[in-house]
Amino acid sequence: MTAVYKPADATGRAQNVPVPVLPEVAKTETKEGAVAFATYWFQVLSYSYETGELSLLEIMTPPSCEPCLKSTQAIRAWHSEGRWLVGGQIKTPAVETTFAKDEAGMYKVAVQVHQVPLSYVRADGTIAHTDAQAADQGNLLIVSYGAHSWVLHDVGSIVG
C-alpha cells in the first residue's frame, strides 16, 4: 500500500511527497525533451519547498543561479531546527521553447510559474509569516544538451 501524500499545514510538515521522476523523453535532444526537462526542474524545486530536501535540486542547479541560491537558503533555514514551510508548491501551466540553438549550444525555455504562497511555521507551530499570493511569473531557463542529458545554466525573469 502506498503511503498517502499529505501537504504541510500548521499542524505538521508534508508527508509522503512524491519524488519527481525524470521522464525518458527528457533525456533526448528534442523540443519535447527540453520542455520535459524544464518541467521536471520546477517539480524538483517544488519538492524542495515542500520537504526541505535539497540534494536533488542542488545536483541540477548551477551555483551561478542567484535566485536558486536565494530560494535554497530560505528552504534550508525554514526546514531546520523544527521549523517548516507550508505551501510553496510550484505548477508550470505553460512551458514552451522555440528550440533554437545558439552558437554556444544554448536553448531557451519559457515557463509560466505559479507558486502557492509560503507560510513560515516556527517549531512551536505558530505561523511567523504568510506571503501574499504573487502573480504567475514568466521565467526563462537557459539549457544545453550534452552527454545524454539536459543541463541548466541559468534562470532569468521575462520582463516584457
Binding site: L45, Y49, E66, P67, K70, S71, Q73, A74, I75, A77, W78, R83, L85, G88, I90, V113, Q115, P117, L118, Y120, R122, A128, H129, D131, A134, Q137, N139, V155, G156, S157, V159
Partner: peptide, 13 residues
Amino acid sequence: QDPEFGGAWKPDT
C-alpha cells in the same frame, strides 16, 4: 529568532 522571510521563488525582475 526567525530566519528571513521572502523565500518564495522569484528571479528578480
